[in-house]
């Protein structure tokens, strides 16, 4: 159960960004997660209320985008979808492939409410 540790690390990052941007509240946190990150999405969701209690992100929506596993074949160059324990090329069957998506465990974006501000202030 390392999801709590990962969630605590997430909260440290979120708090530091919120602080830097002078935000009063974090309303939404979006995470990108691939199946090969080794993180159980449900466990991360369960850990979130514990890790976020008392922080600026206490009431934030935790949005987890589950990303697909994709490989590129080192032999024939084809890109194909794959399974966590079957990362071989769907095209030619060779096992020598490179993972191009599926091991992400990433804080993608945050939505913040600014202190003393009601006007829209959108930054990309």
């Amino acid at each position: 159960m390392h999801e709590l540790a990962i969630c605590q690390s997430l909260m440290e990052q979120v708090e530091s960004i919120a602080d830097e941007r002078d935000a009063s509240r974090v309303t939404s946190i979006t995470i990108g997660m691939g199946p090969l990150a080794g993180v159980e999405v449900q466990l991360l969701k369960n850990a979130y209320p514990i890790a976020s209690a008392g922080t600026v992100a206490e009431d934030a929506d935790l949005v987890i985008e589950q990303l697909p596993i994709k490989v590129r074949c080192n032999q024939c160059g084809a890109e194909s979808d794959a399974l966590p324990n079957k990362l071989t090329c769907q095209q030619c069957g060779d096992w020598r492939t490179t993972l191009i998506s599926g091991d992400e465990m990433m804080l993608m974006s945050l939505e913040l409410e600014k202190k003393n501000e009601s006007a829209s202030d959108v930054v990309h």
């Binding site: 997430l10 440290e12 941007r21 465990m105 990433m106 804080l107 974006s109 009601s118 006007a119 829209s120």
Partner: peptide
């Protein structure tokens, strides 16, 4: 009224 911030850091950045 909200600010969107793109981060793209690993959750285990630290």
């Amino acid at each position: 009224g909200r600010e969107a911030v793109t981060v793209l850091h690993s959750l285990l950045h630290e």
